[in-house]
Design a protein around this nucleic acid. Sequence first.
DNA 1: CCGCAGTAGTTCGTGTTACGAATTGTCCGA
DNA 2: TCGGACAATTCGTAACACGAACTACTGCGG
Lengths: 156, 156
Amino acid sequence: MQGDGRMGIVAALVRSTFLVDAVYAASARKYGITSQQGQLLCVLMAGPRGMTELGAMLRLAKSSLTGLVDRTERNGLVGRESDPDDLRAVRVALTPHGSELVEEFYAETCRRIEDLPAALDPEDRDVLADLLGRVVLANEVPEVFLASEEGTGKKV
Amino acid sequence: MQGDGRMGIVAALVRSTFLVDAVYAASARKYGITSQQGQLLCVLMAGPRGMTELGAMLRLAKSSLTGLVDRTERNGLVGRESDPDDLRAVRVALTPHGSELVEEFYAETCRRIEDLPAALDPEDRDVLADLLGRVVLANEVPEVFLASEEGTGKKV
DNA sequence: CCGCAGTAGTTCGTGTTACGAATTGTCCGA
DNA sequence: TCGGACAATTCGTAACACGAACTACTGCGG
């Protein structure tokens, strides 16, 4: 924090996080769901997933996920189908209603988030997207590398 | 999402949010507190605050805040002192222990967040901080405006 | 083919977080 | 002084998150 208009990288990251969280929550509320359920639905847009897989993507313990899927299922937005190839496993998929809802939710959320950097020139927005994108990619610790490159102790 | 290495501004913002959230949570966990309690403590580093004031800063309903302060108080990290100037009001302040803990928590969290853009040149980091900082400032709806501009339904 | 370690998910109990509505006590302006 | 505004709490409800214990199925070694 350096007092004047300019902001340290840490403050900028933390505060932008706050901002995006708020947008996400507001958008979810508007569609009568919670942020977590919204996140789940968004992940499922790409296709059905198993519970374990979802847990990894959302970084949730499996017991947490059971509850989240339960509640979202109770809302009629997702369904569980048993995996034909593995009788233990389950595939969580969007219901027609869930699919319809997430379509709108996703679009609206994107729109709102896109509005956040409205004060920036298009050019600056591109630069921001590029830099922030690089930060994300650099930290998205691809599973593959974890085993080999253990040096930095950067474990989550 | 544009498939290749580059990332849209929306994806970049959302994913960086995910990243920062995770860092915050991990750091908090290490110090035996929750993210929310950590956030509360960080706000209080600058000095004692009233409940209403805290609610505005953390964007929490007052009833939510009562609980958060209760739990944090139970952990011995903050205390309530009654405001001498207004018998209705309360000032929440760090206890010595809380102060000590937040000092370390804050430092560590900053360190971890500062590490996120480690892959960027110092110059690029500055640009990122500047751009992201501008986004934050442009969206930090000063309380004053909230009352007058009610149209958007942007309420908490 | 059997048995057994490992995996996928659920259940259970606990604690945190968040909210709105109703309430209590205080402040202050008409 | 009275009544509206305000600070905070209480209460009831629901979502969320976790770990530990459990069930049921898989797949491998023997």
